[in-house]
């Protein structure tokens, strides 16, 4: 029944201005094409049927990975492969470098983009959770000007973000990882490259021998990346390895009811969140030692 997309107009933008003019003219009926790894299948399945598709792959302003003052800035059009092999990312945001190999498969990582993943806001995706855990800031532009949105305000639900129809994500800024920073990233998936049954992006800093600014962010368990704030708060001010992981796990159970998926129940997801949490805390304790 569905093999071919409904007819649509295609524009290859050369500048942000080109993008804005399409978005301003067509609003909801326009779709931005970056790496196309989600949009193109959606078009072919006629799950998306925009009037016009604006290809942003040639927009210079969206590319590049740079360090600007105390942040790492990753252009929205950066392909996964570029991010995964970037020395700057490896040095200043190692969690992201660790996370990218979990995303799908090589062919997809060659085309798919960093910004595309964030804007697609699939709740099972790795990068939204990393963005939340790392307190990333999203640089947004439109013909009306520029604005910044914190990761914690960007994701609103399944495939839903704070982006307005006339806006485009230009880049993402991640605070540089500092001395004493700890991070842990892992997920439980049935096959390599699958969407996870549950995943965890965790980070914390060790200041004066105790944990500070700890964030446990889970993905594939809710309709958006889920910051487990109650559980994270239990880590604050404690020396790594000095507390009972089961207390943290119990806080997860008290505060979170994961959404089931086709083959994984809510109870199993909660169990896997606990498994990941124990592994993360063990990892933190080991690094400190």
């Amino acid at each position: 029944m569905r093999l071919k997309p409904r007819a649509f107009e295609y524009v290859r933008a050369r500048s942000l201005q080109d993008v804005f003019s399409v978005l301003d003219a067509h609003g909801d009926e326009a779709k931005i094409l970056a790496g196309g790894q989600s949009l193109v299948p959606a078009l072919n399945l006629r799950l998306a049927a925009p009037e016009i598709v604006v290809d942003v792959s040639a927009v210079e302003a969206l590319s590049g990975i740079t360090v600007v003052d105390d942040v790492l800035r990753i252009g929205a059009m950066s392909r996964y492969i570029e991010v995964a092999t970037s020395d700057l990312v490896a040095r200043h945001a190692p969690m992201i470098a660790r996370a990218i190999p979990y995303i799908a498969h090589t062919a997809i990582r060659n085309r798919g983009t960093f910004g595309g993943s964030l804007c697609n806001a699939d709740p099972a995706s790795e990068l939204p959770a990393c963005a939340l855990a790392l307190k990333a800031v999203f640089n947004i532009s439109s013909s009306a000007g520029e604005r910044k949105i914190a990761a914690s305000d960007f994701f609103l639900g399944t495939y839903t973000t704070a982006l307005e129809p006339n806006e485009v994500l230009v880049s993402v800024e991640v605070p540089l990882t500092g001395p004493g920073s700890l991070f842990y990233f892992d997920e439980v998936a049935r096959r390599q490259g699958d969407y996870a049954m549950a995943g965890l992006a965790a980070r914390a800093e060790v200041r004066g021998g105790v944990l500070a600014d700890a964030r446990l962010v889970f993905f594939a368990v809710s309709d958006m990346p889920l910051a487990a704030s109650a559980a994270s708060a239990l880590l604050e001010g404690k020396a790594p390895g000095s507390f009972d992981a089961e207390v943290v796990c119990e806080a997860l159970a008290q505060t979170i009811v994961p959404l089931e998926d086709l083959t994984t129940s809510s109870a199993t997801k909660l169990h896997l969140m606990k498994v990941l949490t124990r592994r993360a805390l063990t990892d933190f304790a080991g690094k400190e030692a």
Binding site: V188, R190, M197, T263, T264, S265, A267, T268, L270, H271, L272
Partner: peptide
């Protein structure tokens, strides 16, 4: 034999 079924058989969930 999904992880879900195996964990259930193990009484973990």
């Amino acid at each position: 034999f999904t992880p879900d079924k195996i964990l259930r058989a193990l009484g973990k969930t």
